[in-house]
């Protein structure tokens, strides 16, 4: 069973934000208006953490794209009262949208603040719902959502592989952010297979994870920026 993971190279990430935009379009993530945004209800499955280090003139800026980190020990799934979020067999912290009761406990429990909530019904007029990405269902109001590693793409990749009567190959299944990254800063693949790009990269000395000390064992690795 593969264990899907991601490596984001902060060296090559230029912070252009295409991953975030691609994610929104791919997953039909609602775009709230300015008033809602002002309240802090912007929904970004892929967010960007920007850090400024040092003082003028010796400043360093870091752009850190932040999907869901798909922890191996996810604090969010543990607290979910109805199993609307769970760690699946392939290591993806999945969300079951029709199951969620909207208690937002997982949001409160996530130390990475990756979850978004549909405060209102996403404003996709009925007429356009079919022109959204048909592979991802639109969510109703009142439920929590977050990055799923584009799990629908895994389904499609598996089906395709099944039709062709073969196993999944590296690169068959890639989330939208990794696929669209202009600078190829995001790699994606099976962490348990030692030969994949992600396995190779995460073994390098530059690899680190966010808030590793919490023991959440995220499956999104970052590679330190080096000058």
């Amino acid at each position: 069973m593969p264990r899907w993971g991601m490596v984001i190279d902060l060296n090559t990430c230029t912070g252009c934000g295409e991953c975030a935009a691609a994610c929104k379009i791919e997953n039909n993530v609602a775009i709230v208006g300015p008033e809602e945004s002002d309240m802090g209800r912007t929904m970004l499955w892929m967010d960007m953490l920007t850090e400024y280090e040092g003082e003028y003139p010796n400043v360093k800026v870091r752009y850190i794209p932040r999907p869901c980190l798909h922890c191996d020990e996810p604090p969010c799934t543990r607290v979910c009262p109805v199993r609307a979020t769970y760690l699946n067999d392939e290591g993806i912290v999945a969300q079951i949208f029709p199951q969620c009761i909207g208690c937002r406990y997982c949001m409160a429990a996530c130390p990475y603040t990756v979850k978004s909530f549909n405060w209102y019904r996403p404003e996709w007029p009925d007429t356009m719902e079919s022109a959204l990405n048909p592979d991802v269902s639109a969510r109703p109001a009142g439920i929590v959502e977050k990055c799923t590693f584009c799990i629908h793409r895994l389904q499609i990749a598996k089906e395709e592989a099944a039709v062709e009567n073969r196993d999944l190959r590296e690169g068959d299944y890639i989330p939208a952010c990794a696929e669209s990254c202009p600078t190829k800063a995001i790699s994606f693949g099976d962490l348990d297979d030692p030969d994949t790009e992600v396995s190779r990269l995460r073994r390098t000395a530059r690899a680190f994870r966010l808030l590793e000390e919490l023991g959440t064992e995220p499956k999104v690795y970052y590679l330190y920026e080096v000058e």
Partner: peptide
């Protein structure tokens, strides 16, 4: 609000 709830798509 004005902009927030406006239609997104017109088809």
């Amino acid at each position: 609000g004005a902009l927030g709830a406006s239609t997104i798509y017109s088809v």
